[in-house]
C-alpha cells in the first residue's frame, strides 16, 4: 500500500491521466454500451492506434530532446512509397517472383528508407546545427518532394495480396499491428529508463550545453536518436501501406497535429527533458477511445479536428495552471555572471 502511494506521488501527472482515462472509459460505457465495448470495436481500435501510436512515439522521442520532428509523417509516407514500389510490380514481376521475397524486399526497403530519412535529419541537426524545427521542416518538404517525383502524385496500389494480411491478422484476437506497437513502446520505455543513451536523451533535453560539458558525444546521440525515429516511421509506414493497400503523398497529414497533441497530453515538456512512455500510452488510449467514440457517434472529420485542437489548447492551459512547464528561474544567485550563452529554447521548440 505504501509502495502504491509512493508510486502515485512520483507519477502524479500519469496518475491523473489514468484517472481521467478510467472516467472516460466508464462514461463511454454508459453512453455507448455494447457498441463501444465489443470485440470488433476493440479490434478496430487497436488496429487504428498502431501506426499512429508509432508516429506519436517518434514525436515523443524528438520532444524529449527539446526538439520536434515535423517530418515524421512525410518520412513515413516516403518509406511507404518506396516499400510499395516493390509491391506494385514496378520492380519485380509479381507473376514469377515468390511473394515472400517481394514482401521481404518491400519491408527492408521501407525500413531502410525510414532509417535514412531519420539519419538525414540527425546529421543536419547534429552536424550543421540547424534547429530541429527548421531541419525537419526542410526535410518534410524534401521527402514529400521525393515521394511526389516517384509517384507522380498518384496513388501506388499494392498488388501483393498477402501483404494486406499484416493489417488484418490477429494473434489470440489481438491484431498483430497492435502487438508491434506495444513491443515498440516497451522497448522504448526500457531504453529510456535503463540505458545510457536513454538517460542522456533526457539530460540533453534538459540542458544540451551541460551535457557537452559532461564529456558526452552529444552529436552521435542526436544522430542515433533521429535514426531511431526514422526507423519507427518506417515501421509505421509498413502498417499504413498494409492497412490502406496503397501509398500516396498526402496520406495521414492530420497525424502530425495528433502526434503533437498526444505527446503534450502525455505530459512531455515541449522544451525537453521530461516525458514518460507510460504517459504516452495513457494519452494514446484516451485519444483512441475518444476518436472511436466520435466515430460511433457519427462526428465528422472536422468535428474531430476541432476537438483535437481544443484539447491541445486545454491541456496546455491546465499544464500552465499546474505550473508544470515553467523552467524554474529561481533567484538564488547573488551575482549575475556575464553570460556567454544564448539560450534559444523559447522560440525553437
Amino acid at each position: 500500500m505504501e509502495n502504491i502511494l509512493k508510486w502515485l506521488k512520483a507519477n502524479g501527472y500519469e496518475s491523473v491521466l489514468a484517472g481521467v482515462n478510467i472516467l472516460v472509459l466508464l462514461l463511454l460505457g454508459l453512453i455507448l454500451g455494447d457498441s463501444f465495448y465489443s470485440i470488433s470495436n476493440m479490434q478496430s481500435m487497436s488496429t487504428q492506434v498502431a501506426e499512429f501510436g508509432l508516429l506519436a512515439l517518434a514525436m515523443g522521442l524528438a520532444m524529449l530532446t527539446g526538439g520536434i520532428d515535423l517530418s515524421i509523417v512525410s518520412s513515413a509516407v516516403l518509406a511507404g512509397i518506396v516499400g510499395a514500389e516493390f509491391l506494385t510490380g514496378n520492380v519485380f514481376d509479381l507473376e514469377s517472383t515468390d511473394p515472400t521475397l517481394v514482401m521481404g524486399a518491400a519491408v527492408v526497403a521501407a525500413l531502410v528508407t525510414g532509417l535514412l530519412c531519420g539519419l538525414l535529419n540527425g546529421v543536419l541537426i547534429a552536424k550543421t546545427s540547424i534547429p530541429p524545427i527548421l531541419a525537419t521542416l526542410g526535410t518534410s518538404i524534401f521527402f514529400t518532394g521525393v515521394g511526389t517525383v516517384i509517384t507522380g502524385g498518384a496513388s501506388l496500389p499494392v498488388r501483393v495480396k498477402a501483404f494486406f494480411q499484416l493489417g488484418v491478422v490477429t494473434v489470440a484476437r489481438v491484431p498483430v499491428v497492435f502487438i508491434i506497437m506495444v513491443v515498440a513502446l516497451i522497448l522504448a520505455a526500457i531504453a529510456l529508463k535503463r540505458t545510457r543513451s536513454g538517460r542522456r536523451i533526457y539530460l540533453y533535453g534538459e540542458n544540451s550545453i551541460a551535457l557537452r560539458f559532461t564529456g558526452v558525444r552529444h552529436e552521435r546521440l542526436i544522430i542515433l536518436l533521429y535514426a531511431v525515429i526514422g526507423l519507427i516511421c518506417g515501421i509505421a509506414a509498413l502498417i499504413m501501406v498494409s492497412r490502406t493497400a496503397s501509398a500516396r503523398v498526402g496520406y495521414g497529414e492530420a497525424y502530425l497535429l495528433q502526434a503533437i497533441l498526444v505527446v503534450v497530453l502525455a505530459g512531455f515538456n515541449p522544451f525537453g527533458g521530461r516525458g514518460k512512455v507510460l504517459g504516452l500510452v495513457l494519452a494514446l488510449l484516451m485519444l483512441q477511445t475518444l476518436s472511436s467514440a466520435f466515430t460511433i457517434m457519427r462526428y465528422g472529420p472536422y468535428m474531430k479536428v476541432f476537438i483535437w485542437g481544443a484539447m491541445l489548447l486545454a491541456v496546455m492551459f491546465l499544464n500552465r495552471l499546474m505550473n508544470r512547464n515553467k523552467r524554474s528561474t529561481r533567484g538564488d544567485e547573488t551575482n549575475d555572471a556575464g553570460q556567454t550563452v544564448v539560450t534559444v529554447e523559447g522560440s525553437s521548440a
Binding site: R196, R199, Y202, A210
Partner: peptide, 29 residues
C-alpha cells in the same frame, strides 16, 4: 548553463559523468 541539469534530480546530475561505468552485466544502467 554549463554545469547543471536544473530540473533533474541531484542523483542524475552526479551520475551524468559516470554512466559508462554504472552498467550491469546486461549493459543496462
Amino acid at each position: 548553463t554549463e554545469g547543471l541539469f536544473m530540473e533533474q534530480s541531484v542523483g542524475h546530475n552526479i551520475s551524468s559523468t559516470r554512466l559508462d561505468t554504472l552498467l550491469n552485466k546486461l549493459r543496462f544502467l
